[in-house]
């Protein structure tokens, strides 16, 4: 467990960044812009399609990409916890009343909950869509260098949004580490033992408040240090980024054509409205 890892089911940013900095695989050398366009196209496709087979195939392809980049698959499955929970919390309630051929019923006394084939397909499709998005996002994060992400943030967002984003991204790691350290200190003196919701809530609130206060203290020190070097409200993150090559354009072009074909030819696609 790394120092910043507070909940094991949440992706560890330190681990993600250390993978990103390795630059050991082919995917690390692909232009970040190509991978970013790929992300947009993946999102477009899973927004447009409702077809379970397409979602299944796309998921396997992306999982294959993730694994072939040497990224940790076991950890990925642990990181699926919250996305799966989000999908189930939204659709898990609706799925029982979905029209279709009943598969089984749960008798709740006053009423019965029936799961239909459409309900089952619906939840599996939405789960696959969520997993596709998570897996590609993490693949993108873990094969793209930190400085390239920073340069993308600087180029994409207007000021002051880019400045806030860049500073937050830089100090996120230290804040996570600080939060982890405070919790370790609390636990080392028995603070992790559950006394009551009220006592537990108070301990957590004090830790959270401390995280905010220390963050604001640091914000002031960082700001002073920036002013001391002539900060006037704007700073650059000007790392050069590799531009997409011909092969990058070809991959993107092929992906766009595939999406167009899928939208036109495959049933259950066309989620425009």
């Amino acid at each position: 467990m790394s120092s910043t890892m507070i909940s094991s089911h949440i992706p560890d940013l330190d681990l993600i960044t250390s993978y990103a900095q390795r630059e050991g695989t082919f995917f690390s050398r692909v232009s970040p812009w190509t991978k970013f366009t790929g992300l947009l196209l993946v999102i477009l496709l899973i927004t447009l399609t409702r077809n379970l087979v397409i979602c299944g195939v796309l998921y396997l392809i992306i999982l294959g990409l993730y694994a072939s980049a040497g990224l940790p698959v076991k950890k990925l499955f642990a990181w699926y916890t919250l996305p799966v929970l989000f999908v189930i919390s939204l659709v898990g309630i609706m799925v029982w009343t979905e029209p279709g051929t009943p598969l089984f019923s749960l008798n709740m006394g006053l009423f019965a909950l029936t799961l239909t084939d459409n309900g089952l397909i619906l939840i599996i499709t939405l789960l696959l869509k969520a997993l596709i998005s998570v897996t590609y996002s993490l693949f993108f994060l873990m094969t793209t260098r930190y400085q390239h992400f920073s340069a993308m943030i600087y180029r994409i967002f207007p000021s002051p949004l880019d400045q806030i984003f860049l500073l937050a991204y830089r100090y996120l790691f230290l804040t996570l580490s600080m939060t982890g350290a405070i919790f370790k200190a609390v636990r080392s003196r028995g603070g992790g033992i559950i006394h009551s919701v009220r006592v537990q809530g108070r301990i957590f609130a004090e830790v959270f408040a401390l995280v905010f206060i220390r963050s604001f203290d640091r914000a002031e020190r960082v700001h002073q240090a920036m002013i001391a070097r002539g900060y006037n409200g704007k700073y650059e993150a000007g790392t050069d980024m590799p531009k997409p090559g011909l092969s990058g354009f070809c991959v993107i072009g092929a992906f766009v054509c595939a999406i167009a074909l899928i939208v036109l030819m495959v049933p259950n696609t066309g989620g425009l409205y």
Binding site: S150, L166, L167, Y169, R221, V222, M226, R229, Y235, A237
Partner: peptide
């Protein structure tokens, strides 16, 4: 750490 706020060493040293 309070002084090195930029994403890379080069960005930070170029700031001034």
């Amino acid at each position: 750490d309070d002084q090195l706020f930029a994403p890379t060493v080069l960005d930070d040293v170029m700031f001034g």
